[in-house]
Design a protein around this nucleic acid. Structure first.
Length: 190
DNA sequence: CACCCGATTATCT
DNA sequence: GATAATCGGGTGT
């Protein structure tokens, strides 16, 4: 599930001197082999192989010819291929470095989207498959803010299984990405 | 090999 | 709100 990751801290180690971090404020759950919206729904391929492996590993994919997206494999069971897509982060440490990568100094615009946060945190396909539970991993997740109020909605940018409310976000945080479009709701009804 | 299209973003009207 | 940008994955011939 994606609810549990809201409020946790994402840490990206670049060098001994440079560490980026932020609080995860928005995520979406993808149900692997049982979810038509998941990359894993049609089975294992070279691109999505990581999803079919152990929980706690990063699945990073490239899309729209321009953007990387970061997921964490969540399945307790090998082959189930469920994961959470990290959609938005509130920057905490290394904000100046992030601002350079993102070409904006507006705090709420630096990492409020799945493609934006990978750019801000300098995450690309070379990090696909790494174990984020290890202390020396270039990407880690640690406990962040406890007792965050979490809201839910439909997932964004998908055309199937749109009725599932598997998007989770911090209810009182300005760094979340856009709301689901009305168009998707209409599409669902037709 | 040709074709389609996507878990997006920036920019324009 | 609408759309171009941009490219590689997946599918079918």
């Amino acid at each position: 599930m994606g609810r549990e990751i809201i409020g946790k801290k994402l840490i990206r180690t670049l060098t001994d001197e440079t560490e980026l971090s932020g609080i995860i404020v928005e995520a979406e759950a993808y149900g692997g082999n049982r979810d038509p919206a998941s990359h894993a729904f049609r089975g294992k391929t070279r691109r999505n192989a990581v999803l079919f492996g152990e929980a706690g590993h990063a699945y990073v994919y490239f899309t729209y010819g321009a953007h990387y997206c970061l997921n964490f494999v969540t399945s307790s069971k090998i082959g189930k291929a469920s994961a959470v897509l990290i959609r938005a982060v509130e920057p905490v440490a290394g904000v100046d470095t992030m601002a350079l990568s993102r070409r904006t100094t507006v705090l709420t615009q630096i990492a409020n989207g799945p493609g934006k946060l990978t750019r801000a945190f300098e995450i690309d396909r070379t990090l696909n498959g790494i174990d984020v539970t290890l202390a020396d991993s270039p990407i880690r997740v640690e406990n962040g803010i406890p007792n965050v109020k979490v809201a839910t909605s439909r997932r964004i940018g998908i055309n199937v299984a749109a009725e599932r409310k598997w998007r989770f976000y911090s209810a009182d945080n300005l760094n979340v990405s856009r709301q689901p479009s009305r168009k998707m709701a209409i599409k669902r009804e037709s």
